[in-house]
Design a protein around this nucleic acid. Structure first.
Length: 658
DNA sequence: ACGGGTGCCACG
DNA sequence: TCGTGGCAC
């Protein structure tokens, strides 16, 4: 899995930003009375109190650990607040966390190439920003270094904890520092600003690592949590890695790491140094071998991908033990729930990001009661994805049946029982951007209503619109509209967020307070929500904070802000969005929706396509990808494009509206 | 066969 | 290309 990538004496400035116990923070923002209390997020609390999926720092202090059940957590920490993950369609629904993650990404993406690594982690390539800063403002001249920057942990810098900030200040402004260290210092300043900006606009704290590559940045972001940042200087790398247990390295937490320990006696990253690249390659293959050899030396050439949006969407659920699904009807029932969720998310992605998914995959876990071993795995199956919950369901059911037949073999009857499904998921992948507003197709369709063969009033469906989303708090609160910058989108829309704006390192106190006051009403209640964090802080003997804008100070003065920004209104006109089926919209999608243009793939039928000028047909094909038919056996449909475009008749599934 | 729900990547 | 397996949070 790990793949080797060479590296050229790396002077990039890479940051890894990691949200602190993210789901807990999301819930605490939603319910501010939870702030400062030991809190954990659980899902499905009926069985042993539910499984913990996030634990706040106050609760961690009491010994609560992820992967306890709710009951155990209560035992260890009786006053713990257990918040349930929202449930929709009978399953956990992570939408609010995804959207919260998008809020964060939209802020972090302002300063450089940004890669959404997971729902709560982001990589940033700040090389350009750091170089620019260094050119324009020599560090030695920096007067007001922000408090938050001074709280950085600089690996290898000092052993005691006295005068930490002055030591950091000296390091940051050292005249004789080498160029790479100066760039790191600039990176740290930028990251501190970004983290404060995230806090101001989202109320979320995060931790960060700043280093010369992704691996080291990731390592560092976890070293001082919560709400702190850690800098990895080149000089510190050897000392950092040498004693580091191998399992701490990303990718080595599983079987590969175990193999290194048991097969090679490698317990720390330093132990790896004894092995030649060839030796490692012999054992683990050339890619993994080289990768191991490199990471032992702190080398990792992985680039930060400019990707703000997920590459796939999935919806799944497990049915452990007695809950296992034992009939096709039960499977269909749950597939319907899963497909409806997936479809809704695809709609939103289409409308807010103008992307379409091309592949539908069904995964299942199953057992056969008739055999103890020979656990054949239930095979995944995929097919071209057609939009609309009903069609996704139809295809999913077919994929499932194909998988089931294969799973059972020809001996067992699919209806006879003797099998159980313990997990089901549907995933949409191969998501590509469709030509945006300026594209010829859009223009062509716009005002060409003779092409609208369906009876639906389709006029507005093809009205492209520039979305002028401002990055303001309330806007960004509403979910995942992010402008991708990796060029996958054909003509790139002009940036939604302004880049940079000569915002030099330390000077904008004014901007800050301005932002703060503008986005936050004076907070009622809960004077000091962050006792836990402060304790943490006290531990490191923080000297007084005279600084003006540190994150710590935010807590002291701003405690918590209302979650009043929940949007409530839902434009019903939005319902016909992609035309095909009515789907419920969550509040968060509502806003962007009014700004989005609509595209009803299924209203374009074959004859329409054939009428298009050849070059447009070609263009269409590039994103509507000819499909071989979705159907495993039984049903066979017409030619791919025709099928893809054909108006859908069997769309009777009524989606429930709640 | 309880760490659930997701999401990413590499390999064959 | 598709399907599997591994890893992570």
């Amino acid at each position: 899995m790990p793949v080797a990538r060479p590296e050229t004496s790396d002077s990039r400035i890479i940051a890894h930003v990691d949200m602190d116990c993210f789901y807990v923070q999301v819930e605490q923002r939603k319910q501010p009375h939870l702030r400062g209390q030991p809190t954990a997020v659980v899902q499905y609390n009926s069985w042993k109190g539910g499984g913990l999926i996030a634990v706040g720092y106050e609760a961690r202090k009491d010994g609560v650990k992820r992967s306890m059940r709710g009951d155990e957590a209560k035992k260890v920490c009786p006053k713990i607040q257990l918040v349930q993950v929202p449930v929709a369609r009978g399953k956990a629904d992570l939408t609010i966390y995804r959207n919260a993650g998008s809020e964060v990404v939209s802020i972090l993406a302002r300063k450089g190439r940004c890669e959404r690594a997971s729902i709560d982690e982001v990589y940033l390539d700040l090389t350009d920003a750091a170089e620019t800063m260094l050119k324009e403002t020599p560090l030695e001249n920096l007067e007001n270094i922000d408090e938050e920057v001074l709280k950085s942990h600089v690996l290898g810098l000092s052993l005691n904890e006295n005068d930490e900030k002055e030591i950091v200040r000296e390091w940051l402004t050292r005249r004789d520092a080498d160029h790479r260290d100066k760039l790191l210092a600039c990176g740290a300043i930028i990251v501190a600003q970004l983290r404060m900006q995230v806090l101001r606009e989202t109320e979320f704290t995060c931790s960060a690592g700043i280093a010369h590559n992704k691996m080291l940045a990731k390592l560092a972001s976890g070293m001082n949590k919560p709400a702190q940042q850690t800098i990895v200087t080149s000089a510190s790398v050897k000392g950092l890695l040498e004693p580091l247990p191998i399992k701490k390295m990303k990718q080595l937490g599983g079987k590969l790491g175990s193999s290194l320990q048991t097969d090679l006696g490698v317990n720390t990253v330093g132990d790896l140094l004894q092995f030649s690249e060839e030796k490692l390659q012999d054992i683990y293959g050339s890619n993994t071998g080289t990768w191991l050899w490199n990471i032992a030396r702190g080398i990792s050439g992985d680039e930060v991908e400019g990707r703000l949006l997920p590459k796939s969407h999935g919806s799944g659920k497990t049915f452990p033990g007695v809950q296992a699904l034992k009939s096709l009807a039960a499977v269909e029932k749950w597939l319907k729930e899963l497909c409806e969720e997936l479809s809704e998310r695809l709609q939103i992605d289409l409308e807010t990001n103008k992307r379409v998914a091309h592949t539908l995959t069904l995964h299942a876990n199953a057992y056969k009661s008739t055999d103890t071993d020979s656990h054949k795995k239930f095979p995944s199956k995929s097919c071209p994805l057609r939009y609309g919950a009903g069609k996704i369901l139809e295809d999913s059911v077919n994929l499932f049946q194909a998988g089931l037949r294969e799973f059972l073999g020809s001996y067992m009857s699919p209806v006879g029982g003797g099998w159980g499904i313990t997990g089901l998921s549907v995933t949409a992948s191969k998501i590509v951007a469709i030509p945006s507003g300026t594209s010829s197709i859009t223009k062509y369709f716009h005002g060409q209503d003779r092409f609208h063969t369906s009876s639906e009033p389709s006029d507005e469906k093809f009205a492209p619109k520039d979305d002028n989303l401002s990055p303001s708090r309330t806007e960004s609160h509403s979910a995942s509209h992010l402008t991708e910058c990796d060029g996958e989108r054909t003509p790139m829309t002009h940036d939604t967020f302004t880049f940079d704006q000569h915002e030099t390192a330390c000077k904008d106190e004014a901007t800050e307070s301005c932002l703060t006051s503008q986005h936050h009403e004076p907070q009622p209640r809960v004077p000091n929500t962050n006792d836990g964090k402060r304790t943490y802080e006290q531990k490191r003997k923080a000297t007084k904070e005279k600084g003006t804008s540190s994150i710590l100070r935010f807590f002291q003065t701003n405690s918590c802000s209302s979650s009043s920004q929940e949007t409530k209104c839902l434009s019903t006109g939005a319902q016909e969005a992609l035309g095909m089926e009515s789907e419920i919209l969550t509040e968060s999608q509502n806003k962007v929706r009014t700004n989005s243009w609509r595209y009803n793939v299924d209203e374009i039928d074959q004859s329409v396509v054939e009428e298009l000028p050849p070059e447009l047909q070609e263009e269409l094909r590039t994103w509507l990808r000819p499909q071989k038919q979705a159907k495993p056996s039984t049903v066979k449909r017409g030619s791919s494009i025709a099928h893809y475009f054909s108006p859908n008749k069997n769309e009777h599934t009524n989606l429930k509206k709640s």
